[in-house]
Design a protein around this nucleic acid. Structure first.
Lengths: 212, 212
DNA sequence: CCTCTTTCTAAACGTATGTTTTAAACGATA
DNA sequence: TATCGTTTAAAACATACGTTTAGAAAGAGG
């Protein structure tokens, strides 16, 4: 039934791994198919064979971990909701923002499995032309939509408009940290050292909680 | 003394105007010299004639308005400092953040003079390879350095590290708003309408003040 | 063994890229 | 008008790009 070479199983994922990293560090146009294939040690035509086109590769990089990413966020949300219900209280703003920020930041620090590359890839994908990546935007938006009712519950004085503006700002804090975590030492003249994932996460959550 | 064609004076600036817009909407690699020259209605070789290379053009786009940009920010800072001294008090966090955010946000809404394009260009330039644009980063960093002492004065309990982390987050709010202001309606399912520049600025300042 | 599907390779295709070259057109000066 | 520095123009350059093609190599089933 299955016709596969011994190396074949690795080839496709090796391309995804490599291009995830490369797309994380440069724009779509700046990364050539030849750079990808030579880094992945596969034939030039492998990209078109497996993914149809360069754009197909780009979208496949996104799809591979998209559901897992959002699953983690919603998992944390449900966890917080469960605990809050048990204690007979509303979900706190801190818990909500924590659920939004912890997965991407923890992934950012996870160098081994390539999750760091995916997170940086995602942040960059937001800046590609909307026509190419509109599904990227919409899918992440859907996740945040699920948070809105809880924000409204814990702070009924806020309008939906207020909440979405604040979510927008939180995404800004998140994306900027993802894109420039390695340069924060330069920004601060080495006053800021990159800390543990928990410390970075806590700084972001604290800032965003107060902003909310 | 001056040898110039009647059209010549405009040509160079027309290239800058056009490439400012194009670089604001796409990455460095995705914008071709031919796209620029045809949009500016100049000959293909004009870019290399005036700016030496494509990278030279990119840096010239940055340089053209860089000092003006930072001048505005420092002007607002000095204004706040003067008023505070007159009233015998420290500069408030709100005033500081206001001085940081008002110029870029007001520029973002200024469509006529092309300032909107420059602001979006700047936000994108931050994401280009550090080797190409290290001066971009360092020059904007210098401006924020001047704010640090005032933040320290108004809140002495904060360490320098704390302050730089917060400045980093503020930059995140700013850049993300610059990059995605036009998509915020999509994010919020048309709950958020793009408002006046003052309203947007005030939302950002309010969020960042609380975070600080 | 042969056959079939899948995977991999090498080469070429057509086009787009940044840059250089050559010369013409132009404006001011003498 | 003749000359010189400057600007514009058209063409070509060499390379890089994404993609396609044709065929070889490899594994699985008969």
């Amino acid at each position: 039934m299955k016709y596969k070479k011994s190396v074949g199983q690795n080839a496709k994922e090796r391309i995804l791994d490599v291009s995830e990293k490369l797309f994380a560090e440069g724009s779509f146009a700046s990364v050539s198919v030849r750079t990808v294939t030579s880094a992945a040690q596969v034939n030039l035509s492998a990209v078109n064979y497996y993914f149809g086109s360069k754009k197909g590769l780009f979208q496949s990089v996104y799809v591979r971990r998209a559901t897992l990413m959002n699953h983690e966020r919603l998992g944390l949300l449900q966890e917080a909701v469960g605990k809050a219900q048990q204690e007979g209280r509303a979900v706190s703003v801190r818990e909500l923002i924590n659920a939004m920020l912890t997965p991407p930041i923890f992934w950012l620090y996870e160098k081994e499995k390539g999750l760091s590359g995916y997170i940086r890839f995602l942040a960059r994908a937001y800046l590609e032309a909307a026509s190419d990546m509109e599904n990227v935007l919409s899918q992440e938006v859907d996740v945040f939509d699920k948070f809105v009712p809880y924000f409204q519950e814990v702070n009924p004085s806020l309008t939906v408009e207020d909440i979405y503006w604040r979510i927008h700002f939180i995404m800004g804090v998140m994306h900027h940290t993802i894109n420039h975590l390695d340069r924060i030492g330069l920004l601060s003249h080495t006053a800021c050292r990159v800390e543990t994932r928990e410390q970075t996460r806590d700084r972001m959550v604290a800032f965003c909680c107060e902003g909310f």
